[in-house]
Structure formats: structure tokens, C-alpha cells
């Protein structure tokens, strides 16, 4: 076989392969960028984090395999128990409040009134602003001495002594929840409003003819139609709120003395302040089954 024969054979083989698998190859080429990003920014860090959770690792020093010791340390750590309670209180309170307020807002925004479009746009502002910008503004408002809230409350005689919004453990938790609610309500309102707009108006007209009152229309028409959307937005918000970092970190850094620590801020503290990278990696690994279940539920709802 001559050189030319080999060359022709190779060219023919490549062309045949291309002709047979053109669609598949094109498909892979199109998803390659997304795949590269997925591998680089999600798969690799996730795998490294999983590996790290089984090792003892301090910055600058070599990692040492220690099996399940990190997980046992996390489970038996009283601070982790505190953080778990904080995260549940923070998430469920904030999500419930966002759902209620968001629903109310959506119902209002679904009515016809002048400048409705402008109001709808303004309502989005808390959600559209970068979190660190709005949270720093809230931090100023919460400031004990120079903050807006204490200034107004003292000047109007509503309180006699400044409130320690971020310095008292119970107030600190309420304060961070408030900011989360303020930020998250527009998301609920927007999604629920979209859901409201898919409800056929004839149903409400028929209900009017039958003499149904507002509550009955809400209970028998609006709620059933919104059921799955409400569930979807609640689950997604639960996922996000459980993983909240910026608001708590910027306002209290998890203080005072762990009173507002959530999983994300506590993981950061264990990793970058206490400098136990392996232990820090064990925390999200331990929580993975819970979040995976939530994610599966959300995906199922999306398919519905």
C-alpha cells in the first residue's frame, strides 16, 4: 500500500465518520462550552470539596487522610447544632413571610390601576440591586448610633433607648431575616403574578354570576391554579435561603457569638477563620442529601 493509498483511506474514513455522525458531533460541539464551564466551575470544585472532606487540611500544609473524622466532629459540634437551628429558623420564617407578602403583592399588582407598569417595575428594585449594595445600606440603617431606624424611632418618641438591631442575639436574627424578606419578596411577587395571569378570567366571571365572594374566588379558583407555582417558588426559595451568605456575612458575620450563623457563613468561618479546610468541606457534604432531595422535587415540579 502506498503513501497515497493510506492518505486517501484516512481522508475517506474521516469523511464517512462525519457523514454518519454529523448531527451528534455538531451537538457535542455546541454543548462543549457549557460542558467545559460545568466541569471547570462545578464538577471539579465539587469533586475537590468531596475529597477534602475526608482529609485534614490547613492552608499551606499538605492534606492528611482522616476518613470520617471530620463528619463526626461536625455532628458532635454544639455550634453546628446551633447553626442548624439558626438556618431552619431563618429559612422557614423568611420563606413563609415572602410567600405571604409576595402573594398579596401579586394579587394587588394583578388588579388594573393607573401606572401599574411603573409600580411593577419599582417592586423589582430590591431584587435587582446587588445584594452587597442593599445589605450595606441596611447595615447603615441598623447602626446603633448613626442608623436611620434608631434615629427615627427615638425622634418620634417610639423608643427611649436605641435598639441593638445587630448586637442582641434575638434582634440580630430578626434583623437579618427582615433583609432577606425585603430582598426576596419581589421574586415571589413576580412569579406568582405570572401564574395569576394564566388563570382564565372566565372562571372569575362565572364565579361572579354564581354569587361567590372574594374569599371564595381566591380559595376555589386562585389557589388551586397557583398551587404548583407556589410550591415551585417556595422550594426554590428554600434552597436559596438555606444557602444565603451575603446578607448574614455583611450584617453580622454570623454574630453575635454564632447567633445568626447559617450553614454558608459557618462553613466560611471554619474554612477561612478557623483554617480547617477539611472540616469546612465536610459541612456542605453532610447537607448534600437534604439539598439533593429538594433539587429533585424542584425538577419534578418544573416538569409538571
Amino acid at each position: 500500500m502506498s503513501f497515497m493509498d493510506v492518505k486517501n483511506f484516512m481522508i475517506k474514513s474521516i469523511l464517512d465518520l462525519w457523514k454518519r455522525n454529523r448531527d451528534a458531533i455538531t451537538g457535542y460541539l455546541f454543548i462543549f462550552p457549557a460542558l467545559a464551564i460545568f466541569i471547570g466551575f462545578i464538577a471539579y470544585p465539587f469533586t475537590y470539596e468531596l475529597w477534602l472532606s475526608f482529609h485534614e487540611k490547613n492552608p499551606g500544609l499538605e492534606a492528611k487522610f482522616i476518613g470520617l473524622r471530620n463528619f463526626l466532629e461536625v455532628i458532635s459540634d454544639p455550634t453546628f447544632h446551633r447553626v442548624s437551628i439558626n438556618s431552619c429558623v431563618y429559612t422557614f420564617t423568611a420563606v413563609f413571610a415572602k410567600l405571604l407578602i409576595g402573594l398579596g403583592m401579586a394579587l394587588l399588582l394583578n388588579q388594573k390601576f393607573k401606572a401599574r407598569g411603573v409600580v411593577r417595575a419599582l417592586v423589582l428594585i430590591p431584587w435587582a440591586l446587588p445584594t452587597y449594595v442593599s445589605t450595606l445600606a441596611w447595615r447603615w440603617m441598623y447602626h446603633h448610633t448613626l442608623g436611620l431606624f434608631n434615629y427615627l424611632l427615638l425622634n418620634f418618641g417610639i423608643i427611649r433607648h436605641p435598639i441593638m438591631w445587630l448586637g442582641d442575639p434575638k434582634m440580630a436574627m430578626a434583623s437579618v431575616i427582615m433583609v432577606n424578606i425585603w430582598r426576596g419578596v419581589p421574586f415571589f411577587a413576580l412569579i406568582l403574578l405570572a401564574g395569576l395571569q394564566t388563570i382564565p378570567t372566565e372562571l372569575y366571571e362565572a364565579a361572579d354570576v354564581d354569587g361567590a365572594n372574594a374569599w371564595q374566588k381566591f380559595r376555589y379558583i386562585t389557589l388551586p391554579y397557583l398551587k404548583y407555582i407556589m410550591l415551585f417558588v417556595t422550594l426554590i426559595s428554600t434552597l436559596w435561603t438555606f444557602n444565603d451568605f451575603e446578607i448574614v456575612y455583611l450584617l453580622t458575620k454570623g454574630g453575635p457569638v454564632n447567633a445568626t450563623h447559617l450553614f454558608a457563613t459557618y462553613t466560611y468561618e471554619v474554612g477561612f477563620i478557623v483554617l480547617k479546610l477539611g472540616l469546612a468541606a465536610a459541612i456542605p457534604t453532610l447537607l448534600m442529601p437534604f439539598f439533593l432531595t429538594l433539587m429533585v422535587k424542584v425538577t419534578q415540579l418544573m416538569e409538571r
Binding site: 446603633h144 448610633t145 436605641p162 441593638m164 445587630l166 448586637g167 440580630a172 453580622t252
Partner: peptide, 21 residues
């Protein structure tokens, strides 16, 4: 000591002295 001292950052004792409090 001001009650809010428990939530102070490095800048806050500067602020309280600078404003004369």
C-alpha cells in the same frame, strides 16, 4: 461602655470618639 459595643467593628470606637460621644 456603650451597649452597642458588642457589635462594633474596628471603625466604631473611632467614630464614637470623633463625634464627641
Amino acid at each position: 461602655i456603650p451597649p452597642e459595643s458588642v457589635e462594633w467593628t474596628d471603625a466604631d470606637n473611632n467614630i464614637i470618639y470623633q463625634k464627641g460621644a
